[in-house]
Design a protein around this nucleic acid. Structure first.
Lengths: 340, 340
DNA sequence: CTGAAAGCGCTAACAG
DNA sequence: CTGTTAGCGCTTTCAG
């Protein structure tokens, strides 16, 4: 590895001088054109690349942001990560992914610790293990670490939360306009989605019917979940007098569910209408393209990063909770009720 | 930030002693149980976390591997990255993604440089811009940098290449068994896929017919490509006397293509059979589940990382070119030829 | 068993 | 305009 000292030696100047010309902070210190040229020439010839570690050590920054998400194969996270990566790179940062396995909260926190030990300057956190009483949580709020929680709201930490109600209302309006009046919810376990779902169902006068409930263990491997949903689709397909509409908790699960229906000869949207959550771009390329309650990915990440970068610079920022409204992304998985 | 010196001061020992107990290399130096206990207790209480930068500086390693891939939204890369992330973490490393934009080779190399300036210890490279004559290429081979190329083969660099022929042969065998004899290839531009495709077509006695060719610019935004493929599907759907089978260059494009057919009322596999490349897990949850010429993701990444970690330790390793055979992943996108 | 000293590559403060 | 000095947090000799 070629260092500034190497260059300094060859150029017959001191090492800090090399630093100065190579970092050329415009206004800071001016160096004679001759020295500049000489140093630059040598640096170029030797393919000098400043040592990341050296800089990190002295600056106390690694110029990297941690991104704690669930399985990256879920397009919801893929798309969030994609956006985050681009935005972060614009500032000369790198994004370091940490995938939570949802096995236990300990596992979440270990993953978080691993990122911290890597020296990330900030973290976007999609998990839920960070809660009062846990040591790491206390430490984070105390240190005022640049951390934003998405989709979950621990006290005293800045949070970005989707507001599902508007999107869900739109969903029911669309369903109603298509002559539906009976719906079943699949995997709407979390209250954040379940409550708006029930509220809208009531408001639009829908009968909410029990879907096929599989007693699956709480947290499983992603593929198992998908397989289970597929099986639920089989059940649903074979169900007599089933509702004409289904609302399901994510685009990824919708894919599996629709796949399961397809195998049983039940077509979407001809035989049943499906509305999912997430509104991922990926849903656009499914068969059929998904109608989905979408989050504003760009806005969510933009807000999160904005806050993080602000706190990296100044520790005296507040910890706001911002709600980002959802809206229905209408594509082709909803059709007229076949049995009105 | 709490440092080893802080702990040393509080424990009344020297800083190196703290380092010794906290790193406890079993055999290296033994420290009195009393000191150990004291130091550990303080470290724990203060939530000591060793400085990443400090270690990186002294060890010359960052314990991170760069992963240069195309758009992460493509399940092919998502799944590769997922596997790579897991494997790398098992060794206490982190994976740093670098997304190439396919805009120009310069862009590829900038992305690579960015990873290098971040101090990654090795790189898995899915690009094609690294070629003789380019400065970075020369430097990489000269430095014996721990770098593995996947899907592309520059000289003097270790490479991992899929061998498409076996998988493609299986594909044609399956098609033939289903009464097909006419096929059209979509987006089979790259020779690595086109040659085995044509060879197998010949061997199995298939007529290869021109598909709908859209004159799209060479490298475009991913979403545009998907939209274009969708349009090609429209054309194909409306084509009189079209072949009953389609081979398409990736699972992601197959999704778009099948989506396009679906919109025109053409059903897969009832009306046309589709075989794609990649064999991603994601294809399993599409409608219909994709039959696809699959790569052994785990094996590819495993081999790549194995070599990288070996070279990180020893510079005297060779630069092998390994071929990993593909095999057909049979799911449900192939059916009997409707017009035999 | 443990302390002292050196040095990894870099930036920043202070002299000249 | 440029050199000297110091120090970031850690590991690694080398003494003792």
């Amino acid at each position: 590895m070629v260092t500034m000292s190497d260059i300094a030696r060859m150029a017959g100047v001191s090492q800090p001088t090399v630093s100065r010309v190579l970092n050329g902070k415009g206004s800071s210190t001016r160096i004679s054109a001759a020295t500049q040229k000489k140093v630059r020439a040598i640096a170029q010839k030797l393919h000098f690349r400043p040592s990341f570690a050296g800089r990190a050590l002295v600056s106390g920054r690694t110029r990297s942001i941690g991104f704690m998400c669930g399985n990256i194969r879920n397009p919801y996270y893929t798309e969030m990560a994609d956006i985050a990566m681009r935005m972060v790179e614009e500032r000369g940062y790198h994004l370091i992914l940490g995938m939570m396995r949802w096995i236990s909260w300990q596992n979440d926190l270990e993953c978080f610790e691993s990122l911290l030990s890597r020296g990330v300057d900030g973290v976007i956190y999609f998990g839920s293990a960070l809660a009062p009483g846990r040591a790491l949580y206390e430490r984070m709020v105390q240190e005022k670490f640049p951390l934003v929680c998405v989709n979950h709201q621990p006290p005293k930490l800045p949070c970005i939360l989707p507001d599902f109600q508007p999107g869900v209302n739109e969903a029911f309006a669309l369903l109603k306009a298509n002559g539906h009046s009976r719906v079943t919810g699949i995997r709407l376990n979390g209250l954040e989605k379940r409550i708006p779902f029930l509220a809208a169902a009531k408001e639009y006068g829908f009968d909410v019917e029990e879907g096929p409930t599989f007693k699956t263990e709480p947290s499983r491997l992603p593929e198992e979940v998908l397989q289970n949903v597929r099986r639920e689709a089989y059940c649903f397909a074979e169900q007599k007098d089933r509702p004409g509409a289904v609302v399901i908790t994510s685009d990824q699960l919708a894919a599996a569910f629709i796949g399961g229906l397809f195998e049983k000869g039940v077509m979407v949207p001809r035989d049943v209408s499906v509305i999912s959550f997430d509104g991922t771009r990926a849903g656009q390329f499914m068969a059929p393209p998904l109608t989905s309650v979408g989050q504003d990915t760009t806005e969510i990440i933009r807000r999160a990063l904005e806050w993080i970068f602000e706190r990296i610079d100044r520790k005296d920022t507040s910890a706001p909770v911002v709600k980002i409204p959802t809206r229905l992304v209408i594509r082709q998985s909803v059709g007229p009720n076949p049995n009105p």
